[in-house]
Every structure is written in C-alpha cells, then in structure tokens.
C-alpha cells in the first residue's frame, strides 16, 4: 500500500513531544495541550485537564479536522490549517503540524488567542522537527532498514488468547 507509514512512537519520541507540549502549556498559559494523530489516535497530553475522556477528544478532534478539510476543498481551499472554537469559559485552538498531527490547545481567560497563536507557531516548528524524524524512521522501517518490530513475534496463539473469554 502506498500510504503514510504506520506511526510508531518510542519512549524517547514521547519524551521529546511531551517536553514541547509542557513548555507550550506554560508559555501560552494554557489549560491543556494534546497531540492527536489525524486518524484519531491520541499521541500525548499535557496540562491540567488530565483525566478527561481523551479517547473521545482525540476521535472528535480528528473528525472535526477531517470535516473542515473536506469543507475547504468544497470551496476551493487546499485546507484550513488552523481553527478556533470559542466557548463561554474554555476555547480550543487547533493547528496541523507535520501534515499529519493535530495540535490542540485548550485555554481560558487566563490566556488570549493572540498569545496562543504566537506560542503555537514556535512549538509547532519544534514538533514538526520531532515528527519529521519519527516519520523518516518509519519510512526507513517500511523499506526494511529499521530495527525489527516485536510484532513479528506474535503467534496465532497470542491472538487466540485475546478471544479466549
């Protein structure tokens, strides 16, 4: 399949992404920062909203971005790379980084849209660098140059055991 490579995240990647996310929470005075794969998988979370239903959040954010991109195409735009939702208390700022990852910033009156925009721009560059490395490695793995995956060891028995109930 000629598709985007599978996203494989190692401990070291996670550490780097989390560091950038936590820095963004502090710099932008945000409540929380989430990184979500375009397919709807949560990559990292940082900030004070820990404990909310992040699985739902990730899936809805990805659906939202996909629908907005579809809308952009209908009116002749390639994409709307940034969107902003304004609520009574909390607001959500959404941007795409490295074409494939959605950066979500949740903030309230302690911050402002201008500040969030400014800080997101800087953090976005750093995140793009990290993701570029991750995707480059994934592509190399697809070409058979990377380290062997532990899933080559999965046996039919392992799969059967999942359904043994």
């Amino acid at each position: 399949m000629s598709l985007t490579p599978q996203l494989v995240l190692f401990e070291e990647d996670h550490r780097k992404l989390l560091a950038v996310s936590e820095r963004l929470v502090a710099d932008a005075n945000a409540k929380a920062v989430f990184l979500v794969d375009r397919n709807g998988q949560l990559v990292t979370e940082a900030g004070e909203l820990k404990g909310i239903d992040t699985t739902s959040l990730a899936s809805l954010v990805a659906g939202n971005v996909a629908a907005t991109q579809g809308l952009a195409k209908v009116i002749g735009e390639p994409d709307f790379p940034t969107h902003f939702h304004q609520g009574e208390r909390d607001n959500v700022h959404i941007t795409l980084v490295a074409q494939r990852i959605i950066l979500v910033v949740v903030f309230d009156e302690r911050s402002s849209l201008g500040l969030v925009r400014l800080r997101v721009k800087k953090a976005g560059q750093r995140l793009s660098e990290v993701f570029d490395e991750i995707f480059k490695r994934a592509e190399a793995e697809m070409d058979g140059e990377g380290p062997a995956s532990p899933f080559s060891e999965i046996s039919d028995e392992d799969i059967d055991n999942l359904f043994s109930d």
């Binding site: 996203l7 494989v8 190692f10 990647d13 709807g40």
Partner: peptide, 15 residues
C-alpha cells in the same frame, strides 16, 4: 494504519 506506542505500550487499530 495502526499506531504503535512503545511509551504507553499500546497498539491502536481502527476498524
């Protein structure tokens, strides 16, 4: 495509 997260030790698949 499946998302393999070594940090959280998770495989995520979309059906």
């Amino acid at each position: 495509m499946a998302f393999i997260n070594y940090s959280a030790r998770e495989i995520n698949c979309k059906l």
